[in-house]
């Protein structure tokens, strides 16, 4: 992926996904789901339910014991090599030695290899969209938690990924930040990528989601379309145990 072209959003399909933690326990157990391009899958569950593990599996960070994940026609590892995936993990942080602007600039220069002028322009536009233009020359330590999370999402969106993985990004946001993030994730104008987002509180994103997967100890206990009336995209299919 080079130049200014955005990667086209890709559908995501999970089939019988099983993954183990370091101690051999099943942290994902039989996840089946499919999501169309530019759809939003909301994954909820209590702490330790496997939400973060699911995102890590999608990002090829967590190896699968069995089952498979398809991102378009690619495996997660292939999608990662093509820089089609971006993620904001739960405890993610900006690099402390750089300003917010430089943090957003970094993947544009190093990852996308954009010319410097284009990269600077794109970073500025993104930071303006995320309401961080006044904070762009601050070091990360001088941001609030909410601003820090917004900057992380801006950095992830900067590379215009085909699939965007967001781990509990709304948790630290105040109401204006939450509204802004919802606007950026709302179809059809805001959402350019296929999004898999986790949240502790379902109501944060439920109305925007094309599907809702509820996990409990790694097992899908319920999988439903978020809003029955909105069927622009096919609903999430699940082979898991419906609750």
């Amino acid at each position: 992926m080079t130049g200014d072209d955005a990667t086209a959003a890709l559908p995501v399909r999970l089939r019988g996904v099983v993954a183990l933690d370091g101690a051999g326990r099943r942290i994902l157990d039989g996840i089946d789901a499919s999501l169309p391009a530019r759809g939003l899958l909301l994954v909820t569950g209590s702490g330790g339910a496997g939400k973060s593990a699911l995102l890590q599996a999608l990002a090829a960070v967590l190896p699968l014991r069995s089952g498979d994940i398809a991102i378009g026609d690619w495996t997660p590892a292939q999608a990662v090599r093509r820089q089609a995936i971006a993620a904001v993990f739960q405890h993610d942080a900006l690099l402390p030695g750089f300003t917010v602007f430089e943090n957003v600039l970094l993947p544009l220069l190093q990852g996308l290899r954009l010319p410097r002028r284009s990269a600077v322009l794109r970073a500025q536009v993104l930071l303006a969209q995320f309401g961080l233009i006044d904070e762009m020359h601050r070091p990360p330590r001088r941001l609030s938690d909410g601003q820090h999370r917004r900057a992380l999402v801006a950095r992830a969106m900067a590379v215009q990924p085909a699939v965007l993985l967001l781990d509990d990004v709304l948790a630290a946001l105040d109401d204006p930040g939450r509204a802004l993030m919802r606007r950026l994730l709302a179809p059809p104008g805001g959402r350019l990528a296929t999004v898999v987002a986790t949240a502790t509180r379902a109501e944060d994103l439920l109305d925007l989601a094309d599907g809702h997967l509820v996990l409990e100890r790694g097992v899908p206990v319920r999988t439903t379309p978020a809003i029955e009336g909105r069927r622009n995209h096919p609903p999430v299919d699940s082979g898991g145990r419906d609750g």
């Binding site: 990662v80 995936i85 971006a86 993620a87 993990f89 993610d92 690099l95 993947p107």
Partner: peptide, 19 residues
Amino acid sequence: ARRRQIESLDLLGVDVVMM
């Protein structure tokens, strides 16, 4: 590594370890 920062930057094409 604990924060998964290395992986998230790696996904964005930044080799943070070598950097």
